[in-house]
Design a protein around this nucleic acid. Structure first.
Lengths: 185, 185
DNA sequence: TCCTTATATAAGACTAATCCTATATTATAT
DNA sequence: ATATAATATAGGATTAGTCTTATATAAGGA
């Protein structure tokens, strides 16, 4: 469901092809909503069926015709309604926390290695986030008006804060492990 | 995949029925891994096929026979291997952040209402988390040994820190909106 | 020369998870 | 009197998302 509205959101800025959209997703909202290429094309087809998007074929030599999708008035209305509506509450899922929950099975050394690994991953992601504002791609030109840009940065800020909180958590656990504060059954 | 190991993790503490497991999930790891009743039963069947769990029927009058599942040696080995292995990196998904990303479409009043709503939800969840350690159910008795309890609290701590970071984010956005710092296109 | 990347689309198969429904009885609450 | 919660299981249908593969050509790098 959410993917539909994410696509409508981008089409509301500018008409795009499925190929364009895949690149846009990968360079903008992928931190909180990764999208599969195959699913983007399917969703575009569905949006067209529903009357939320229209499509023009742009013939090309040698390559498949580009199918440029644009948002319709019905699509804009649907987008606006969804945006103003209640937050789509998605239940959180974190498989790594399952490992933590049952980590009592492991030795203290294994546990320390695990949390060191967590911390390393989180630091790497944070380093990546720091570079995001710099790499505004050619597709982002339609999203750069200050108001749009502001909300884009808000989602990035959310990601950074969440990741920092998680890193601090991992570091506090590492300290506790090192100072022997893990109960030994 | 993760659900399999979560179930094995609990069966490693004690034999349980599908019904038991549903309750255990709902009172322990549901913050980061909600589980559907139907899926628990199906996964138990699969674990038995794979030889990771065994089952004994306990006949009852008037009600369906209880099927009590226990972990096998192969199951314990599989669990241990998974726990010690690399973190199962799940890509983050947050539908509410899609709303934020495209919130430029809305009026400043609507945006303020939206973030007030976010903050309210987060405060409610935080209040819930505060009560979690108090409500150790009858099923948790097998998980209360100090080492297991320690890791249980770590996952809770993670949830609290993450939610707090998100609440602080929402509050900082609310402040910025109120002081007119949202660019108006 | 050969391999990879970029451009562009899309179907097929599969997995995980959700939602709904069915069965059967007892106890409790309104 | 009626409804709902608790105990216990499980199938059917559906949705969302992933992974793999197919088609077609040009440009660039090793």
């Amino acid at each position: 469901m959410s993917l539909e509205f994410a696509i409508l959101g981008f089409l509301n800025y500018h008409p795009y092809t499925g190929y364009d959209l895949k690149k846009i997703f990968d360079t903008s909202i992928r931190h909180f909503w990764p999208a599969d290429q195959s699913q983007i094309y399917r969703t575009l087809a569905r949006l067209t069926e529903q009357g939320f998007a229209g499509m023009e074929k742009v013939p090309q030599e040698d390559r498949p015709d580009r199918k440029v999708y644009h948002i319709t008035e019905a699509g804009q209305a649907a987008l606006r309604e969804w945006l103003a509506g209640p937050p789509p509450l998605d239940e959180p899922r974190s498989a790594p926390l399952i490992q933590v929950f049952f980590a009592g099975q492991l030795t203290d050394e294994e546990i320390l290695a695990k949390f060191d690994g967590f911390a390393a991953i989180m630091r790497a992601i944070l380093a990546q986030y720091d570079q995001v504002p710099a790499q505004i791609g050619p597709y982002q030109q339609e999203i750069t008006p200050p108001r749009e840009h502001f909300f884009w940065l808000l989602t990035l800020d959310n990601g950074i804060r969440t990741m920092r909180a998680n890193l601090e958590w991992a570091e506090s656990v590492i300290e506790r492990i090192k100072s022997g504060k893990v109960p030994s059954e």
